[in-house]
Write a protein that binds this DNA or RNA. Structure first.
Lengths: 217, 217
DNA sequence: CCCCCGTGAACAAGGCAGAACTGGTCGACG
DNA sequence: CGTCGACCAGTTCTGCCTTGTTCACGGGGG
């Protein structure tokens, strides 16, 4: 769903496409600016937007493997709230939530009011929560440090698996044409090459050309 | 900033507290439901909400060190867009963005219109981007604007260095393999054949140049 | 209102480091 | 008043860097 579709979907609820558009843009801007200022935007039941500082670190160019220094920066972060997580992870919760939403949509169309139905719906959802506080967790930390060193192995495993997967496809196609890994050395990554070849479409070419022209100009 | 404050801040823009409240709730719900369905919600310049699957894994209660089984689930994820990241990380970008926002807020209050100012603002922002091309810049810089042809060379240089690094790990690198760009020629129509090769390179080069320029600016 | 263009967005690859997850409790918000 | 969110901590794991490339979207012009 893109922005246009979102606006379209909200059109009914907000009383017109204009309102919907303005609303979406306004909210987006507000959140953006607020987060930029350093304040967090907490929307209950949905999530929290906040500015998160990132320390400088040593990155790595995936293509070349070359190390690059990355200076500290700040990035926006969103932490989904409980309700949101539940609805996304739980189908039942989704239905419950949807029901509530419908009610709200119906009544809230022109009239402003109906928070009541919403609340009801909300209540229903929590009931399904699995978290409950039943475990008392008596003993503090008996064997906390029993850490298992299996980690490294596991880590390795994953990447290993990944590599083959990638290799296979790559090799398959370009075998005789232009080995991805090898050729790319020059400039183009394997897959690009293949694709380009196949789809060296005029359109694409044109677009590229145009772009170039535009930029140059 | 909590939800109430957000609504209050938007009150002016959206023509009343009621509208603001309805708008916020409607959007939140819409996003929640859409993500829950599995669709992603992409808002250009802001970010993308999507449902992300998480594999089952063995968790651990940090307090007790006790292992707990966590079954696979899905969680909502938000990936901030370029503009958002810029505004948050860059003070200058923030100011630019703020300026645009003000204009929009002022005119957009009752009237629907002014996207124009926004666009302007957006454009300005990218200019300030600090992100990339710097690396390539040094080489390209000297000839960039004068000699277009120089660009390709520069570009090549970077990748070239990369090649060895990657090649080593990858190992399979037939030197004779045709250059990616060249190879594709086969697909290309007669007249384009030669041209395509050339053109493609040029295009790429240009793009690189453009980007670099933009950044520099 | 439609079409085209420009520009944002996603992908991929390879390591490392920050981030998430769980969970009990207090504070805050609705 | 009821309930959601933040927090601490250890381990696991996910994202992030770059940069080219291609696709699609948003917006402006006709």
């Amino acid at each position: 769903m893109n922005k246009a579709e979102l606006v379209d979907a909200l059109e009914t609820r907000l009383g017109g496409k204009r309102q919907a558009t303005v609303a979406v843009e306004a909210i987006v801007e507000m959140i953006t600016l607020t987060v930029a200022k350093g304040d967090k935007v907490a929307i209950s039941g949905f999530g929290t937007f906040e500015k998160q500082a990132r320390n400088a670190r040593t990155g790595r160019n995936p293509r070349t493997g070359e190390a690059v220094k990355i200076k500290k920066t700040s990035v926006p972060r969103f932490r989904p709230g409980t309700a949101f997580k539940e609805v996304v992870s739980d189908t039942k919760a989704l239905r419950a939530y949807t029901a509530g939403a419908k009610e709200r949509a119906a009544s809230g169309l022109t009239s402003v009011a109906p928070a009541a139905p919403a609340t009801t719906a909300r209540k229903a959802a929590p009931a399904t929560r699995t978290s409950a506080a039943k475990t008392a967790a008596p003993a503090a930390a008996p064997a906390r440090k029993t850490a298992t060193k299996a980690a490294p192995a596991a880590r390795k495993a994953a990447p290993a698996k990944a590599a083959p997967a990638k290799a296979a496809p790559a090799k398959a196609a370009p075998a005789k044409a232009a080995p991805a890994k090898a050729a790319p050395a020059k400039t183009a990554p394997a897959r690009s090459a293949a694709k380009t070849t196949t789809a060296a479409r005029t359109t694409t070419a044109k677009t590229a050309t145009k772009r170039a022209a535009a930029k140059k100009a």
